Amino acid sequence: MLVIKVRKSYFVVLFYEFCVEALRWHLISTSKQNLDAMKKQILFIQGAGTGSYRMDKKLADNLQHLLGTSYVVHYPEMHNEEDADYETWARQIVDLLKAQDGSIFLVGHSVGGSVLMKFLTEKDYKKSVAGVFIIAAPFWGGDKGWKYDGYETLALPTTTLKIADDVPVFFYHSRDDETVPFEHLELYGNSFSNASIRKIDSGGHQLNSDLSVVANDLKKL
Score class of each variant (00 low, 15 high):
Glu87Leu: 14
Trp89Asn: 11
Val169Thr: 10
Trp146Ser: 15
Lys98Cys: 00
Ile163Ser: 10
Met117Pro: 00
Asn62Thr: 06
Thr88Asp: 10
Gly68Gln: 10
Lys147Asp: 03
Leu67Ala: 05
Ser114Phe: 05
Tyr71Thr: 03
Ser52Gln: 09
Gln64Pro: 11
Ile93Cys: 10
Val129Glu: 00
Arg54Ile: 14
Tyr71Val: 02
Gln92Arg: 11
Val72Leu: 07
Thr121Gln: 02
Lys123His: 12
Ala155Met: 04
Gly142Lys: 11
Ser114Ala: 12
Tyr151His: 13
Asp83Ala: 15
Phe133Lys: 04
Val94His: 13
Val107Ser: 11
Thr50Asp: 06
Ala136Leu: 12
Ile134Tyr: 03
Thr69Pro: 01
Lys58Gln: 13
Gly141Ser: 07
Tyr151Asn: 03
Gly113Lys: 01
Ala84Phe: 00
Tyr75Arg: 12
Tyr53Cys: 00
Met55Lys: 13
Ala84Gln: 00
Val115Tyr: 05
Val169Ile: 15
Gln64Arg: 14
Asp143Leu: 14
Thr50Ile: 07
Met117Phe: 14
Thr153Arg: 10
Leu156Asp: 10
Ser70Leu: 05
Arg91Pro: 00
Leu66Trp: 02
Ala84Leu: 02
Phe119His: 04
Gly108Ala: 02
Gly108Arg: 06
Gly145His: 08
Val111Cys: 06
His65Ile: 11
Gly141Tyr: 08
Val129Thr: 05
Leu106Cys: 09
Ile163Gln: 10
Ile134Gln: 04
Ala137Met: 07
Thr153Ala: 15
Lys58Arg: 15
Ala130Thr: 05
Leu66Gly: 10
Met78Trp: 02
Thr158Pro: 00
Ala164Trp: 04
Glu81Gly: 05
Gln64Thr: 08
Gln100His: 09
Gly68Lys: 04
Asp61Asn: 12
Asp61Arg: 09
Lys123Glu: 15
Gly142Phe: 03
Val169Glu: 03
Met78Asp: 00
Thr88Val: 13
Lys98Arg: 12
Thr88Gln: 14
Val107Trp: 13
Lys127Ser: 03
Val132His: 06
Lys98Met: 03
Ser110Val: 01
Lys57Asn: 13
Asn62Asp: 15
Gly112Cys: 09
Thr69Ser: 12
Ser114Thr: 15
Gly150Arg: 12
Pro157Arg: 08
Glu82Gln: 14
Asp56Gly: 13
Leu156Pro: 01
Thr121Cys: 15
Ile134Glu: 13
Val115Leu: 13
Met117Thr: 12
Asp56Phe: 00
Gly142Cys: 14
Tyr53Gly: 01
Gln64Trp: 09
Thr50Pro: 01
Val111Ser: 02
Ser114Gln: 11
Ala90Val: 00
Val129Ile: 15
Trp140Tyr: 15
Trp146Arg: 09
Lys98Trp: 04
Glu87Met: 12
Leu120Pro: 09
Thr153Asn: 14
Phe133Glu: 08
Ala60Ile: 06
Asp56Leu: 08
Thr121Asn: 12
Gly145Gln: 09
Pro168Phe: 04
Trp89Ile: 01
Ala136His: 04
Thr88Asn: 11
Phe105Ser: 10
Ala164His: 14
Ala136Trp: 02
Lys118Gln: 03
Glu82Gly: 08
Ile104Pro: 01
Lys98Ala: 10
Ile134Gly: 01
Phe133Gln: 03
Leu120Asp: 05
Lys127His: 09
Asp101Val: 08
Leu154Phe: 15
Asp124Leu: 04
Ser114Tyr: 13
Gly108Cys: 08
Lys57Ser: 10
Gln64Lys: 09
Pro76His: 06
Asn62His: 11
Tyr86Asp: 07
Ser70Lys: 12
Trp89Glu: 04
Pro168Leu: 10
Phe139Tyr: 15
Pro76Ile: 07
Gly142Trp: 12
Phe139Ala: 02
